[in-house]
Amino acid sequence: MTTLYIVRHAEAEGNIYRRIHGWYDSLITENGYRQIAALRERFLDIPVDAVYSSDLFRTMTTARAVYEPKGLELHTRRNLREISMGCWEDRTWGEVSRFDTESYQRYCACDPAWKNRGGESRDEARKRIYGAVLGLAHAHPGQTVAIFAHGDVIRCLQAEVLHIPTPEMKALPHCDNTGVTCLRVEGDRVEMVFRSDNSHLSPELSTLGRQQWWRKKGDGYDVSFWFRPMSGEEDRGLYESLYTGTWSELYGTTADCPAASLADRAFQTAKRYPETLICGMLNDQPGGLLQLDLEQGAERKAGHVTFLALRADLRKKGIAPQLLGQAISTFRKLGRDKVELLCAQANGPAQRFYRAHGFEKAAQIPGAHGPLDLLEKYIGYRPRPELS
């Protein structure tokens, strides 16, 4: 009898930026690395003979929790990848729910007929993942194997093992990041021992514990932005309002606030480069804005965030990272491997937010109202030498 541990990857960019990452190769978040450390502790006393993962960064990195402490080799398999989302890849859930509503609703309902252009259906994914996992079990008779895969294909695998038809898959609970499913395989008989267990995660580490999108009922607040270019007087008013509010909170006054002159410059640039001034929309209402500079830092392969702001009533609800996600998506497509921004040292909330999301101080420069930190976040595929 072969024992299989099927593990979902640690928290990745798509999970907190609310972007659709199937075959898109996203990175692990800061909290994701803490989840990997907890997973490592869970598996320390569990004998494992072989470790496999999909060939994407987020699974290969998570697999280090098991194969490195045990001195094993990591084997990668393309057929362990997430469901291919085709034309939805790296779009936000807010965008597809608004502009591709029928297909989005069929996806959420686990309609067997759902399939994106360039992607695959759940029935195709079920066949693929079940065949891949059964093949690995037969390749390791009598051994214990750890397999690192992705959330939706793990649900597909669970449905296949439990003989749940695709339209009824929506009743299966979602698997938390680094959640573990255990199977026992003997011949073609597959037994589910347990599924989607995240007992190694504290409430602070659990991704699903901090989100509300997956709950049918709940008193939490979970939204997903869609993004559009900013233009016109109404958008200019929003820019000046958010900038003035940020200035007032930081300095206790609106005196000397350069909101009007900065808006002039921002909207003039946006006429040539619409992607530099973006509004985050919640249904029909503006929720925040993102201003980018495509030239500053380009010689260092860095993308510069000039201004990032969220409506005051939306703060502390886990929404702001989506603005970061849009910046990272934009700059990564331009070949940049860092995102940078200036943050006042006196702005404690902003300092804590950016550092919690992987920004580090690269330099300090003088500012008219106090010192500014140049903060940088690496967005390339460089593995950490040590997991923490």
Rank of each mutant, 00 (worst) to 15 (best):
P173V: 11
G131Q: 08
G119L: 13
V161W: 09
M169F: 14
C175G: 02
G135H: 01
Q158R: 15
A159R: 10
H174V: 14
H174Y: 11
N116Y: 04
V145D: 00
P141N: 09
A171G: 14
A132S: 15
H150G: 05
T178V: 07
C156D: 13
I129Q: 03
G131A: 04
Q143R: 13
A149G: 07
G118N: 10
L172Y: 11
V133F: 10
A171W: 15
L162R: 11
Q143A: 08
F148S: 08
C175H: 10
P141E: 08
F148E: 06
Q158K: 14
A137C: 01
P173F: 12
V185S: 00
R128V: 09
I154Y: 00
R128M: 11
V133K: 00
N177I: 05
K127P: 07
M169R: 15
R122N: 02
G187P: 04
K127C: 12
R117E: 15
P141G: 06
V133D: 03
L136W: 00
P141K: 09
H174D: 06
V180D: 05
D123A: 11
P165D: 07
Q143C: 07
P165Q: 05
D152I: 14
T144K: 05
L157R: 12
P141S: 05
A146Q: 02
G151A: 14
E168I: 03
I164T: 15
T166S: 09
G179Y: 04
C175I: 10
L172E: 10
A149P: 04
G142C: 09
A137M: 00
F148L: 11
G135T: 03
A132W: 02
I164Q: 10
R117A: 13
G131L: 03
T144L: 05
R128S: 09
M169P: 14
H150Y: 09
T178H: 06
G151F: 08
E124S: 06
A139G: 00
E120N: 07
A146G: 06
E120C: 06
E124M: 06
A139D: 11
V145S: 02
G142H: 13
A132V: 06
F148V: 07
T181M: 03
R117Q: 14
L183V: 07
T144A: 08
T166N: 08
T166F: 14
G142N: 11
D123Y: 04
D176V: 10
H163N: 14
L134A: 12
L157I: 08
E120W: 05
L134Q: 13
R122L: 13
A125G: 15
F148I: 06
K127H: 07
H140A: 02
T181K: 01
L157C: 11
H138N: 07
E120G: 04
V161P: 07
T166I: 14
P141R: 11
R155Q: 13
E124K: 04
Y130G: 08
Q143K: 12
E124R: 05
G131E: 13
A159L: 10
T181R: 02
F148W: 05
E186C: 00
L136T: 05
A139R: 09
Q158W: 11
A125F: 08
R126N: 04
T178Q: 03
